Amino acid sequence: MKKTILGIALAISSLTFAQQKAKASASPVSFGVKAGLNVSSINADDAKAKAGFYGGVFANIPVATSFSVQPEVLYSGMGAKNKDYSSVKLNLDYISVPVMLQYNVLPELYLEAGPQFSFAISKKIKGDGGSVDVDNYYKGFDFGVGIGAGYYIAQGFGVTARFVAGATDIVENNSGDAIRNNVFQVGVAYKF
């Protein structure tokens, strides 16, 4: 819970800094919302991808002619399905705080890369018999590195795609190979 509160405080302070930066400079800081589909998995032998949802807010802060920093606060549903029993799912829900450095290839097209800090808000295994909390088996923090692209079609509306590769082991006291989250996101965004 402390990590979740810390993550939310970090995100709010980033957005507050963005507003102060907007007042201090001539560069326009823009805010927006985004949402879409997560296709996530973990790198375990018995896991396969499952679909989920992501959504949240962002601030886009220009730092140079073609570069900007975009901190975000997102709800992100991740996890995996069991290969042998597709009704059994690992549901890992996070508040994610990506901080992406964006390069504008064209005024409408950008490429991005950066770190993502995620704080677990729910960890469950769900099957035909219901769901079970697995808080003691999975860590409350996850770190990943994202790369992606986006294209703004018209009047603030855009499409986005991003892959986030997990860099930390998500299993508590794991004595085997590291288990990491991996997620591919595709969605829409709107800048105000």
Rank of each mutant, 00 (worst) to 15 (best):
A9L: 12
A161S: 12
G140M: 08
A44Q: 14
A18D: 08
I12N: 01
V39I: 15
F119Q: 08
I5E: 03
D46M: 03
D142L: 06
V29E: 10
S122P: 02
A35R: 07
S27Y: 03
F141T: 14
G150W: 11
P115G: 02
D177I: 03
V97L: 14
Q185V: 08
Q116S: 12
K139R: 11
S87F: 11
F67S: 02
K81Q: 15
P28L: 10
S86R: 04
K89L: 12
V33D: 03
N181S: 03
E72R: 03
T4Q: 11
S25L: 09
S25I: 05
S41V: 03
N60M: 10
D45Q: 10
G166W: 01
G176I: 08
V97K: 05
V188D: 04
A18F: 04
Y137P: 00
F184S: 03
Q102W: 04
V171M: 05
V183T: 06
I170C: 00
M78V: 06
L74G: 02
F117N: 02
S118E: 08
I42S: 07
K81H: 09
I147A: 12
A51Q: 08
M1H: 08
N173S: 12
M78H: 04
Y151Q: 10
A47H: 05
A44F: 10
N173Q: 07
S27G: 01
P107E: 13
V171G: 00
S122T: 10
G7D: 11
K50N: 13
I61D: 09
M100C: 02
G79R: 08
G144A: 08
V186N: 08
V73R: 00
L10K: 00
F31S: 10
Y152V: 14
A64S: 15
G56D: 11
K81R: 12
P115F: 05
L106H: 08
I153K: 00
F58E: 10
G55N: 04
G146M: 05
V105R: 03
S118D: 14
V171Y: 00
G148C: 09
T65F: 07
G36P: 00
K48V: 14
T65H: 06
P62E: 09
V159Q: 05
P107I: 05
L90E: 07
D84T: 09
D46E: 12
A59D: 02
A80W: 09
A35G: 15
D45P: 04
V29T: 11
G150Q: 11
N174V: 05
F184V: 13
D93V: 04
K89T: 15
S87I: 10
L101V: 14
I5K: 04
I42W: 05
G32W: 13
Q70H: 04
S27Q: 12
L6P: 00
P115T: 04
L106D: 13
S175K: 07
N136T: 10
V171R: 01
G158V: 07
L90S: 12
V186W: 03
N43F: 01
F31H: 09
G55W: 03
Q155M: 04
S41G: 14
A24E: 15
L109S: 06
S41H: 02
D46N: 11
